[in-house]
Design a protein around this nucleic acid. Structure first.
Length: 256
DNA sequence: ATGGTAGCCTTGCTA
């Protein structure tokens, strides 16, 4: 059994003690991080390596940043989503770990939709779709894990009407997420859990956590060869309730 | 109620 988790930590430096504590209890084989918010040279390697993990990171100052924490060394690392050499935002890292090809994805938020940020999001999703096609052609187990900044359906958030025109819920965004599924990828959480209103993100503002008013925007997408092995998938709400919490909480799955 | 919070270092921007 291999356990793969994804967590938007909203700064690895600010979250280090929470992350270390979660790793010690959850013991994932692979942990995909997003919004690390630091260049690779500043990544807190010692503390993570002392828990028995290898670190591969793609970062930049202040914004974005992704990483792969793995118990086995990662091989054949790709940093940056292929398809646009001019894109300098640190939102994608991909590697082979054991027999699994895994990516940590921080998909652009896209708000406000009137700005250039929304077309950037949609174009980024088109590039992700192209990359997913390539990976699926390998017929290997693949897991695309991360903060997709996409709320797939109205029962994946607390207020569908209020969020209707948000970049996380817009039809253009949801259509591109469905396109990933139509390629043959499986939403691991939805494959095993039908219940509505289960979330991975609760805004810091307006008491959203205390009211359980959140969104399901962090996803584990599996190729058929990975989905065949899917044994469990869960959202661990524990870390969201801790002091100095990220606004996201980890989602994990186990493959037989 | 045009609010509210968190993290970065840019005392505004991103989310």
């Amino acid at each position: 059994m291999v356990k793969i988790a994804s967590w938007n930590v909203n700064s690895i430096k600010a979250r280090l003690s929470n992350v270390l504590a979660w790793i010690e209890t959850a013991r994932p084989d692979i942990l995909c991080l997003q919004e690390t918010k630091c260049p690779e040279a500043d990544f807190p390697l010692l503390e993570i390596k002392s828990l028995g993990y290898h670190v591969e990171a793609a970062g930049q100052r202040s914004y974005n940043g992704v990483a792969l924490l793995t118990r086995e060394p990662a091989r054949d690392i790709v940093k940056g989503l292929p398809g646009d050499p001019a894109d300098e935002q640190a939102r994608y890292i991909e590697a082979t770990v054991g027999d699994l090809r895994v990516a940590s994805i921080y998909l652009p938020n896209g708000n406000p939709v009137e700005s250039e940020k929304f077309p950037y999001k949609l174009a980024w999703m088109d590039r992700l779709c192209a990359r997913a096609k390539e990976l699926l052609r390998s017929e290997q187990p693949v897991i695309l894990a991360g903060d997709y900044n996409i709320c797939p359906a109205d029962d994946d958030l607390y207020d569908p009407v209020g969020w209707r025109d948000d970049a996380l819920c817009r039809p253009e965004s949801r259509a591109r997420f469905r396109k990933l599924l139509y390629l043959g990828l499986t939403d691991a959480f939805r494959a095993l859990h039908a219940e509505p209103h289960v979330y991975t993100f609760w805004d810091y503002q307006a008491g959203r956590w205390y009211r359980d008013e959140g969104l399901r925007i962090d996803h584990l997408l599996l190729s058929p060869q990975a989905a065949d092995r899917l044994a469990a998938c869960a959202i661990d709400k524990g870390p969201r309730g801790k002091d100095k919490a990220s606004d996201h909480t980890p989602i994990w799955c186990e493959l037989a």
